[in-house]
Each structure stands twice: as structure tokens, then as C-alpha cells.
Amino acid sequence: MKILVAGDHFVTPELVTAALRERMGATHEITTLTSAWPYQPFGKIGEVDEACGDEDELIAALAGVEVAVTQMAPFTARVLAEADALRLIVCTRGGPVNVNVAAAAERGIEVRSTPGRNAPAAAEHTLALMLAALRRLPDVHATVRAGEWRSDLYALSAAGRELSGATVGLVGYGAIGARVARMLEAFDASVVVYDPYAAVESVSTLEELLSRSGVVSLHARLTAETHHLIDEAALARMPHGAVLVNTARGGLVDYDAVVDALESGRLGAAAFDVFEAEPIPAGSRILTAPNVVLTPHLAGATVQTAERAAALAAEAVASFLR
């Protein structure tokens, strides 16, 4: 069988090829293609999102290929129409956002992904953001770097808060949310969960979770139903001085409403790894908001995530062949 590994500089062709060889030996022909991501940002290509690469280059590489493994390659309807031999696409991500799944189905091409590949990394990053926001670590770090020694930060009005004893509300209880919940138990935090699609009983409404939680962490998928799930009204339901964390998708949050809540003091702090527009546009209010921690969509960026993605993809290919 001829297999194309369309990797990048994170989930590299070498990682995936080694994982495929480990599971299936050297009997299959493997060719590779490397996109410029993350040195070149991903974006919309044709009708698919979060893609990187050239359609014409991908079409040429797919000649005679029956199985393709990729993370960012743009599997548009145009590309799929030219891939006559293709039977399987494995996307090394939580979902195949860079694949036109409907067009693939029309051509009888199976599409698989690797959900959970970044769950440990994203869960750890979520906890790091919670702690950084609660203890205002970026601001404190900046004062030390500036040569200051702010003993006044011991004042009660400036002191941070602990996770121990806090009630943390998790919106979404998939692979990442469930792992965050287990980690929070080690901090002696109380966890409440809202997820109408998960087999977990906690709270029955988002409103109840928001009103009970001193920290709210988002782990839901972005859909028409969840767009701007956290808006002005939702923020008003949270306890005064609560903390909001988002490592899921930027579209879950109305960031203008968040900035208003931070500036008024209603929201005590916030920490975000994802945003509605990425990169964040110059002049965005979130860049100058008080008590906010920002990271550039890096929650899943660990060596182990890439290795896990390659291993899961290789197992998906082996399973398909079996």
C-alpha cells in the first residue's frame, strides 16, 4: 500500500513514519510532504479551516496514494476530486477541521482523527493558567524583572487566591475537561461540571455552574449552540471577583464583555490561550486589559503531544488495514 505522510514542523513526517513502521513493518511504501506550519500560520484554504500547504502540491503527492496521514494539509473538495486511489485520511488532530468530510464521504473516503492526543498537555496548561491568574504571576514577574521588590503585594487587597478550597466549574467534560477535574482534586478544589452531552452528573444548567464557581474553565467544542456561551449575561452570573479560563476555542467567549468585566472589577482575573481572531489584532482591548494572562494557542504544544498524535495516527492506519 502507498501511504502519504503530509506532516509539518510539529507532527513531523519522521515521527509519523517511525510510528507507522513500528506498527506495520517496512512492507508499505511511504512518501512524505512537509508544510511550513508553524513557521507559516494556518488559515482557511478553499472551504476548509486551519490548514497549511498548497493544494496543487498535495494533489501531485497523492498520485496513487491509498492512505494519507496529515495534520494541516488542505484536503479540499478540489484535492479529493483528484485523489482517485485515496481510501483513508487520518488527521492527527482532535477533529478533521482541514478536511472536507462531506466531499470525502461522497467519494467513499474514510476520515479519522486522533481525539485526546493533546489532553495531558492542554489539561496541564489549563492548571498553569488558573494558578497564574489566581496569583497574578505575569504582573508580579514583571515587577521583579524591573528591579522592584513589591512587599506591598502582601497587602490583603493585592494578595492572590488559592485553588485549595475553591469551587471550579468546568464547562465541557471531554478528554481534557475530565483530566482537569482529576488534577483539581489534588489541589483540594471542589469541581462542578456542566456538559449536557457527557455521562456525568453535576449541575443541570450553565447558570447554576456560573453562580457557584469562583473559577470557570471552558472545555467545550465551538458550535452554533456554544458561540459566545460566555457573554455579558453569563459573566454577571459569576461571583464578584471570579476567574475565567479558556483553553478551548476563542469563539466560546465574548471578549469585549470580558474586558468590560475586568475593567469594572466584576471579573477578578482571566487567562486565555485561544481567541476569536488569531493572531490577536493590534489594538485589541484584551491586550491592555487588567489582570489577564495570555498565551498564543500553545496549550497542546508539547513534545509528547506530537509523539502521541503520531502513535494514534499509526494505530488508526493499522486498524483500517486490519
Rank of each mutant, 00 (worst) to 15 (best):
I176P: 00
G251S: 02
A186R: 10
A83H: 04
H28T: 09
V274Q: 03
L267I: 09
L262V: 06
A186Q: 10
R145S: 09
T31H: 07
S113L: 07
N98S: 14
V65L: 04
G283H: 04
D56V: 11
I3V: 15
L163K: 03
T295M: 07
T114S: 13
I280C: 05
H228Y: 09
R221A: 14
Y194H: 15
L62S: 02
E29S: 02
E225G: 03
A63Y: 12
W37H: 08
G214E: 07
V171D: 13
T226W: 03
T247C: 09
L244I: 00
L287H: 00
R87V: 12
E315Y: 05
T17C: 11
V11F: 12
E225Y: 02
A257W: 13
L222A: 13
L15C: 02
A51Q: 00
N118R: 10
L88F: 03
S284R: 01
S151L: 14
A186I: 06
P196K: 09
T114P: 06
A181S: 15
L129D: 08
E208A: 14
E315C: 03
A133L: 11
S264C: 11
H28R: 05
R322F: 02
L321H: 03
T34F: 06
A158E: 15
A186E: 05
I59T: 05
A133Q: 11
S213M: 12
P279E: 00
R23V: 11
E50P: 00
E307P: 06
E124L: 13
A119D: 11
T27L: 05
A159Y: 10
R135H: 13
P196N: 08
T31N: 04
G250V: 11
L62Y: 01
G160Y: 08
E50G: 00
V203L: 10
A224L: 12
T76K: 08
V79G: 01
A51D: 00
G165N: 10
R135F: 03
L244A: 00
R249Q: 11
L262S: 07
A142S: 15
L209C: 12
E315W: 04
M238C: 09
A155W: 00
T167M: 07
A248G: 14
E162S: 15
I109F: 12
F272I: 01
